[in-house]
């Protein structure tokens, strides 16, 4: 059984639960620590963005996660029912600036782009669907 599904609420306190879930999955799949950290960071940044930008109604929502291992690829699908929000649409941050000019905006999504092998977004049936792929060496 190389497929795992779980749900998190649109609440930043769920980040702890995300870490615990990924640790559990990482153990079952014997994932290297580095891969586990990269996946945790990417999903953390993704859901922090989803919680901040996708849900405007202040109601409770559930975000669905599916993690699958296929050969040497970890495929992660994240689905939410919030407003249309493509996290990868924003330009990457300018990293070559001084302390005074540095901004943090867009850095989280930039981490996902750096850490994952592939990333994509689609809108389908009023849902946002993000797929991340991490190749395991």
């Amino acid at each position: 059984m190389n497929s795992f599904a779980f749900q998190l609420k649109n609440d930043l306190d769920e980040l702890n639960k995300l870490a615990a879930k990924l640790e559990e999955i990482g153990e079952k799949l014997s994932l290297p620590q580095k891969v586990q950290f990269d996946v945790n960071l990417s999903l953390d940044e993704l859901i922090t963005n989803i919680i901040s930008y996708s849900f405007k109604d202040e109601k409770e929502h559930l975000i669905d996660f599916v993690v699958e291992l296929e050969d040497n690829k970890l495929i992660i699908t994240v689905t939410d029912d919030g407003n249309e929000f493509d996290p990868f649409a924003k330009p990457d941050p300018n990293l070559d600036t001084s302390v005074e000019e540095k901004h943090i905006g867009g850095l989280g999504i930039f981490f996902i782009k750096q850490k994952m092998t592939e990333y994509s977004y689609k809108r389908n049936n009023k849902k946002n669907i993000v797929t991340l792929v991490k190749k395991i060496d």
């Binding site: 960071l41 850095l107 989280g108």
Partner: peptide, 9 residues
């Protein structure tokens, strides 16, 4: 053990 962009901010 762990830091995200929120910590860097």
């Amino acid at each position: 053990d762990y830091i995200s962009s929120s910590g860097l901010r």
